[in-house]
């Protein structure tokens, strides 16, 4: 499916736009702009395609952070269109188990992400519950690796009888910026998102909200620099909270 990411994204956007046209504009009754700030935490999982199993080796989710804006324009009482530009980390770690336990490389990838979303909502007293769906594009800003790995060229004095790899090879610890490469790394990411919004209106123009999101990348991180590559896709779950200001709450 991810090979046809452009086609799917385009189709998804067409469906959402059609939904907006059919349900939204003809029934416009309220024009309202919402501007919000949000911060949150996320957990990223690296989905692999064309994967090779390496003994004692696995990828694991890793937590991260996000912060950004929420701009939303109400098309009618039920539907709004918005963007949620955010700085977001999509992290993961490579780990080993068994004899190699303790070996890891944690990768922290920072993206600037721009989701375009449609939101439909229902309200009850001061609460508004919404469903959000859309697509996003993201740009991979930087990458950092931190790890502890065995150093084959720094062996221990112990001759044999090892029960753990670091008894054999000295541990090498590192924390360094990874130089993103135009040959290896695909820095533009496209994907879909789905989420919920729960707003609590505590003043006429102010609300607090929490917004869980699931971001599903359709494009992988690896450029096609060779044949037979393992492709890596970000799948990110996030939950953010913030404050939103309703601007120009005018009735048309």
């Amino acid at each position: 499916m991810k090979n046809n990411s452009w086609t799917i994204t385009a189709a998804f956007i067409r469906i959402l736009t059609g939904y907006a046209i059919v349900l939204g504009f003809p029934q416009s009754t309220i024009a309202q702009l919402q501007v919000g700030l949000q911060v949150g935490i996320d957990q990223n999982y690296l989905a692999l395609k064309n994967k090779t199993v390496r003994d004692f080796t696995y990828y694991e989710e890793k937590n991260g952070y996000m912060a950004g804006l929420m701009l939303r324009y109400s098309l009618n009482r039920y539907l709004s269109l918005g963007v949620e530009p955010a700085w977001i980390t999509k992290n993961y770690q490579l780990k080993r188990r068994g004899y190699y336990s303790g070996v890891f490389q944690a990768t922290e990838n920072t993206y600037l992400q721009l989701p375009l979303v449609f939101n439909t909502s229902v309200s009850y007293r001061r609460f508004v519950l919404g469903l959000t769906a859309g697509g996003y594009t993201a740009f991979w800003l930087r990458s950092k690796n931190k790890g502890k790995i065995p150093n084959i060229s720094d062996l221990s004095a112990q001759p044999d009888g090892f029960e753990q790899v670091f008894e054999d090879m000295q541990a090498f610890r590192y924390e360094e910026n990874y130089q993103l490469s135009s040959k290896r790394d695909r820095r533009h990411e496209w994907g879909l998102l789905l989420g919920l919004d729960l707003h609590y209106q505590f003043a006429p123009s102010l609300a607090v909200f929490v917004a869980p999101r699931y971001y599903y990348a359709l494009t992988g991180q690896v450029r096609h620099y060779a044949a037979g590559l393992e492709q890596r896709f970000n799948e990110t779950s996030a939950i953010s909270a913030g404050l939103v200001l309703n601007i120009h709450p005018t009735r048309k």
């Binding site: 084959i152 060229s153 720094d154 590192y174 360094e176 690896v222 620099y225 393992e230």
Partner: peptide, 26 residues
């Protein structure tokens, strides 16, 4: 006396950082 580097991931250019090659006195 030098540095060594090996594979961390499955793709051809997935390398570890260069690690110092060290000989330790007995």
């Amino acid at each position: 006396y030098g540095y060594s580097r090996y594979k961390l991931g499955n793709n051809p250019l997935d390398y570890s950082p260069w690690m110092p090659a060290i000989i330790r006195p007995i």
